[in-house]
Amino acid sequence: MTEITSPQTKTSSMVWRVIALLVVVGLVIVLAFGLRARYAAQPRSGAAPDFTMPLYAGYDGGLGKQQVRLADLRGQVVFVNFWASWCVPCREEQPVLEKLWRQYRAKGVVFLGIDYVDTEPAALQYLKDFGVTYPNGPDLGTKISPKYHIQGVPESFLVDQQGNIVWFKIAPIAEAELTAQLNAALVR
């Protein structure tokens, strides 16, 4: 049962076939991008992704503002720490962080605590328990953490005066380690 197909039907049929094939290729490309997004690791170098974070009342760390923007802190060494009140290992490193903040504050180092997916009352209780005084705020809408591709808490990043990430640490930080990194960053 053969039909004589006119040139036009042959072309339009070809067009449909190409479109079908392109749709399939398109799907694969989308999956490839999805894979890249899923497996993106935390940045260990390069420009630190900018963000704006609202600050908890009473926890502006002397900045005198209600929110802080990373880009505004260019020229200073910034230590960014992702934490949460429900995170047990975070409690281990918290005294170290507060202590070093008080030591290095005068040298122009800024500590920023980003509260990941937390409830305000519990967070404020946590900060009060540890006597934290550096700027802290919630990652509202969970917009900041995806930029840093964090997998959990605690995770910390050290940003130098030019706004580049120079150090990244998963898991609680020991005092000696952070001291060394801060000193190295200040010398640059």
Binding site: C87, V88, P89, G152, V153, E155
Partner: peptide, 8 residues
């Protein structure tokens, strides 16, 4: 390091 996720 802790992740407050579920089962796996």
């Amino acid at each position: 390091m802790q992740k407050a996720s579920g089962k796996r």
